[in-house]
Design a protein around this nucleic acid. Structure first.
Lengths: 215, 215
DNA sequence: TAACACTTACCTTTTAGTAGGTAACTTGTC
DNA sequence: GACAAGTTACCTACTAAAAGGTAAGTGTTA
């Protein structure tokens, strides 16, 4: 059995964080780390966390496995960073949507569109994929995932409540239940569509879902 | 990278199928094979196909890994048998529902209830879990999965059409699209509920979904 | 005697992770 | 401005454990 990824591999070596070092060195570090995250993310989104290895990333980047361990001590740490980066980007997009949308209905449509674009790139939602593997992940990855979905569902619930107020949305039951229903539906439709039906299937599903909220 | 499970390990040894052998021996074989499938199924439903090994099953059953290979030559073959058995059981349940239900709405409610019971046992749908891992599975497992979902969606589409006729269901769009929407929603809600929200979350989701079909 | 349902004892490959080293660069001190 | 000391971002070479799988044998049963 792939045991739960341990968290006790606490980083002892020097940090690679943003320092007062000169610009080009900092950028170099950032680039490599970001590139590792980019490749790892695509692997998780297409294959899952338990179906890729450091060797895959190493060969894709043309560097050694040991270098990967320099940037991310353990696979579990890499996983946590992956989720946190994804969440941060997501939060920024949600802020953008909040700033630019005329009403709640438009916000919801744009939210759904985030998923559509991920699927159009032939990927599963990072955190949806990880949720399927949840029990096999380290505690720290599980906590990071919880935080990601809390963010999503709290944002959605706020949008839904404001949709009742501005009369751009219609639905029954609590905004909390509805937001969880939306996330579940989108993740599931995405997961099913990737191997069977593709974007067309997903579009049909989102039309159905949005219609259910009066859009 | 965990490579796609190869299918070229064609079974050369004697088959373990239902034969003209004496009853108790046949039963013994069947029992062991079924027990292997039972344990493997629970492992896939809780952890995923890429997160368990023959060693896990062996230790759970108290037999050797080699014995498992006697019953199922490769992990891929075990996977295919798992999906086929699941599909057969599912088909039998759908027949039962067809035979016993007064109208389409009742059929749909009982269909949803199948998922609820799986989740109540703390499992994900076998085929939903495998769908998340789809691209990492062998061609033969992928084909078996396709067949499973075809069965589901065709049955659902028939129920939905008859629901329009007997006026027990209401929905917009094609029955095909709607049936795919239902499957996606259920799989996704189930996947999300297992680590976060549990049965209560899933119940809220199914209430929402069924309401969407006029129930 | 032949099939069945197992066993022990291996095999190869892959896994995550470690030890120790090095070249290039930055930094602080004189 | 020279130079030692430290930092960064890598490397080769390794490890132990686990993965899926195989070869060859054994006891039981019909």
């Amino acid at each position: 059995m792939l045991m739960m990824n341990t968290d006790h591999a606490i980083r002892v070596k020097r940090k690679v964080e943003i320092s007062e070092g000169p610009m080009d060195q900092k950028t170099a570090t950032t680039n490599t780390s970001q590139q590792i995250l980019d490749i790892a993310q695509r692997l998780v989104q297409t294959r899952g966390f338990n179906a890729f290895s450091y060797a895959d990333i190493a060969s894709a980047m043309g560097i050694s496995k040991a270098s990967l361990h320099y940037h991310f001590v353990s696979k579990s740490e890499l996983g946590v960073k992956l989720i946190e980066r994804y969440k941060t980007e997501f939060a920024a997009t949600l802020d953008e949507i909040d700033a630019e949308s005329a009403n709640a209905a438009e916000k919801l449509k744009r939210y759904v569109n985030i998923y559509t674009e991920v699927l159009a790139d032939d990927r599963m939602c990072l955190c949806g994929m990880l949720t399927a593997e949840f029990v096999t992940l380290s505690k720290s990855m599980q906590l990071a995932l919880d935080a990601y979905f809390d963010l999503n569902e709290r944002w959605l619930a706020r949008v839904l409540e404001s949709g009742l107020a501005d009369r751009s949305l219609r639905f029954e039951g609590s905004a909390n239940d509805a937001s969880q229903y939306i996330v579940g539906s989108l993740e599931g439709s995405m997961m099913m569509a990737r191997p069977h039906g593709g974007l067309a299937r997903f579009h049909a599903a989102t039309r159905h879902l949005l219609a259910d909220f009066g859009i």
